[in-house]
């Protein structure tokens, strides 16, 4: 019976083999064949992600990263934190139980590139914002094993000594606007000043940050140093906003224990 069932396929393949035998004499035929065969999958899977509406949820309260947070994100990328930490809580019960509401697409809408990660040597960080104090984050980054003896995370003490470079922030926000992040002219112009302001709550600059990014923005001396705006300030500001750009996930999902 199998033989019968298979025979049309066998005949088809016989035909294909013969055609192939002729085609494989032409390098252009192979080239076109390869390009054609290798294009279908990508087009079918990627293009609709731009056209299907409910791919990315609506989140009216979503805000953009402040310049200081974006600078911190750039440092997170520079140091390769994504090699050990994911930022994607999967829709699995144990992950919701451990890390909180599962991640929504909209939460990384302004992430160029996304940092979902592919390995959890350390815990997921999608909702780590405000889980610890600024001081804890600083000390943990300076020496993780000081606070967590079992940790295998590297030390990043130099961040606390390195001045944050802010002059390029307007360019960086402008580039982000080019790729779709809705920064206003005002936000771009004031990027360098806002970066400093966000970590100097006592100054006038801080008011500008609250004005441009919302009153809920964290405005604190993140690294505890008032003499220098450091890379540590930026990285901790970024860590403390993770999961905090929008509340839509917590608002739309049933939480553990409800």
């Amino acid at each position: 019976m199998w033989r019968k069932l298979l025979s049309p396929f066998a005949r088809l393949f016989e035909f294909q083999a013969k055609t192939h035998y002729r085609a494989e004499r032409h390098s252009m035929a192979l080239t076109i064949g390869i390009i054609a065969a290798a294009s279908v999958g990508g087009i079918v899977e990627i293009a609709p992600l731009f056209t299907i509406d409910d791919t990315v949820e609506a989140a009216p309260d979503m805000r953009v990263y402040t310049p200081l947070e974006q600078a911190g994100r750039d440092i997170y990328i520079r140091e390769g934190c994504y090699a050990c930490h994911s930022q994607m809580i999967r829709s699995l019960q144990d992950e919701v139980d451990r890390y909180g509401p599962y991640s929504l697409a909209v939460e990384s809408q302004y992430d160029h590139p996304m940092l979902w990660g592919s390995k959890r040597t350390g815990p997921d960080l999608a909702r780590v914002g405000e889980k610890y104090s600024d001081d804890w984050q600083v000390r943990h980054l300076v020496d993780p094993r000081d606070l967590v003896p079992e940790s295998v995370m590297p030390q990043y003490a130099f961040l606390l000594e390195t001045q944050l470079e802010t002059a390029s922030l307007p360019d960086r926000l402008a580039a982000l606007r080019t790729v779709g992040v809705p920064y206003t002219d005002e936000q771009i112009e004031n990027a360098a000043s806002d970066a400093l302001g966000q970590s100097r709550p006592e100054t006038d600059r801080a008011d500008g940050v609250a004005e441009r990014y919302g009153d809920a923005t964290n405005i604190r001396t993140f690294d505890g140093r008032t003499d220098l705006l450091t890379e540590m300030d930026a990285l901790v500001a970024y860590l403390q906003i993770l999961g905090g750009l929008t509340d839509v996930a917590a608002e739309t999902q049933p939480a553990r224990g409800e």
Partner: peptide, 11 residues
């Protein structure tokens, strides 16, 4: 939906 049902069932 599935994980939400699971979470609620576990709750």
């Amino acid at each position: 939906d599935k994980v939400e049902q699971r979470v609620m069932a576990a709750n």
